[in-house]
Simulated scan of single mutants.
Amino acid sequence: RVLRVCGLTDEEIEEKFGHLIHALELGAPPHGGIALGLDRLVMLLGNKASIRDVIAFPKTSSASDPMTGAPSAVSGRQLKEVSLRTL
């Protein structure tokens, strides 16, 4: 409902937030959204140079996320809302 109040259509909601909406349909995360930083602790205990060596779903070196397709293109309307423009 919040996303609809923000002016997004059902198609836009599915395209942009579908993976999160579907995950939340299964229930809230057991930690309630409070991350404990266990991945960093495991990295330090394992004497690893990068958190990507121990994290289950790391982003790539280009900071993209193959699971969600982030980052994705933004619309002109979104750029205008935050007073940004592309060069």
Rank of each mutant, 00 (worst) to 15 (best):
R1I: 01
R1F: 05
V2M: 11
L3N: 08
R4Y: 07
R4C: 03
R4E: 08
V5W: 06
D10P: 05
I13H: 01
K16V: 08
F17R: 04
G18M: 05
G18P: 05
L20Q: 09
H22M: 04
H22Y: 02
A23V: 02
A23F: 07
L24D: 02
E25S: 14
L26C: 05
G27V: 03
A28N: 10
P29K: 10
H31A: 10
I34S: 06
G37R: 12
L38C: 01
D39F: 08
R40Y: 12
L41A: 11
V42S: 03
G46C: 13
G46N: 07
K48A: 06
K48H: 06
A49L: 12
S50E: 10
S50V: 00
I51Y: 00
R52Y: 04
D53N: 03
D53I: 00
V54K: 00
V54H: 00
F57A: 07
K59A: 10
T60V: 00
S61E: 15
S62T: 11
A63G: 00
M67N: 04
M67W: 06
V74N: 03
S75Y: 06
G76I: 00
G76N: 14
R77T: 14
R77F: 05
Q78I: 02
L79E: 12
K80I: 00
E81D: 11
L87Y: 14
